[in-house]
Simulated scan of single mutants.
Amino acid sequence: MQDQGGSGRATIRDVANAVGVSTATVSKVMNATGRVSAETRKAVLEAARELDFRPNAMARALQSNRSSSVGLLTDDTYGRFSLPLMAGLTEGLIAQGMSVFLCVIDGPKELGATHLDALLQKRVDGLIISGRRVDRLPDIDLTGVTVPTVYALSHGPADGVTLAPDERHGAALAVSHLIEIGRRRIAHVTGPRRFRVAMERAESWRDTLAAEGLWKEGEALHGDWSQGWGHTAAAHLIDGRPASDWPDAVFCGSDQIGLGMIDAFRERGIDVPGQIAVIGFDNWQVLAAQARPPLSSIDMNLPELGREVGRTLTRMIAGESPATGTTRLPCTLVPRASTIGPAG
């Protein structure tokens, strides 16, 4: 380790000496300003981590008129979506010496205004507005707010910067996976029609089947996002019908629906995936991994979405102007035994 001048704490000069660059370059990396090569940036961050270098946040704020903090406002009270997003966001920003304040604003409109005022009084450098539905904006008035703002998993304004999972891509991954394992009669059971994501996933299900010449007349089954609806929908697909009319696979719009579907099939002695394969959406591991058999699912990659939100907001704070509108990030297929059978 480099000499720390007897203070017991690494300085910016120690980091610069360890990497062989100027203190100005280290400052650019830590403050996410200026142009620095990816290789140099990586070396500086690694050296800062090894030396346990912690910039003096107060001094840096006074010098740069920045607080090195951002605020995350969300109406996702359960944390199902906001916490994975927060994990990725924090991971991306902590290397830049930035912290994140999380405020839950599900409640009276005055609550959101109170949290927003508190964040602005702390002179946060930017805001992230996140929700539990991508087709709605949390109930908060941002009139007059001038700090850079990114919308994630919520319906941002047309002239705003919004990041969200690519729902259509995720649905296409699910259906394509079922086709690749030989399934041809693929049903879709999903959430309420009033949810945009439910309609987008249903449209992608139909379009993917049609592109393979497998589309047959019939609509997706819409209910709620619950395990109970999955159980009820399975009965609708199976009961009173000959096995030749059963689907050989079901794409479920959520893991809760998928879990209910698997339970209903098991109660009827139907083998999953031997007779009917089942795939969910969200990759909620506490559910998917514990299903019997474990449930294949589509992961929306929320931590990576959070990291990209952090990168985007950092660039905006530095003065860049990213493209407005919605940027959609790809999903990932996570196959488990409900579609590919047990390992081995």
Rank of each mutant, 00 (worst) to 15 (best):
P303Y: 02
L72W: 10
A291F: 07
G144L: 02
R13I: 15
A38I: 14
M199V: 09
D282W: 01
A113C: 04
V272I: 04
A24M: 12
I340M: 09
G344C: 10
V100N: 03
F265H: 11
L295N: 01
A24W: 11
D139M: 07
A343Q: 14
L153E: 10
L89S: 04
T25D: 05
F53S: 06
F265K: 13
G182S: 03
R41G: 12
L333H: 10
E212M: 12
D159Y: 04
L313A: 07
L45S: 12
A61G: 14
D282E: 11
Q96K: 15
A233D: 03
L237K: 05
V100P: 02
L178H: 07
S154N: 12
V161L: 00
A210H: 06
V272Y: 02
S130A: 14
P55C: 07
E200W: 06
V15Q: 01
L73P: 02
A16F: 08
A158R: 15
A235Y: 05
H155N: 14
M316Y: 00
I257Y: 00
R315D: 06
I340V: 07
R60D: 06
C103D: 07
R136G: 10
R266E: 11
L153S: 04
E39N: 02
R266F: 05
A43V: 09
G191L: 02
L214V: 03
P273L: 00
D239E: 12
R132M: 14
H231N: 13
I276Y: 03
G228S: 13
V272Q: 01
D75K: 14
C331R: 04
I262V: 07
L73G: 04
H177E: 01
Q2L: 13
G107Q: 09
V15Y: 06
E308Q: 15
A234N: 04
M1E: 09
L287P: 07
L51F: 03
D224R: 14
A43H: 12
C252G: 07
R194F: 07
R183G: 00
A118T: 07
Q227H: 14
F53Y: 10
G20L: 12
E217H: 12
T114M: 12
R201I: 02
L237E: 01
A32Q: 14
H115R: 13
I298T: 00
G223S: 09
A164K: 10
L302N: 12
S68Y: 15
I262H: 05
R328E: 10
V250F: 01
R307C: 07
V309G: 00
R315Q: 10
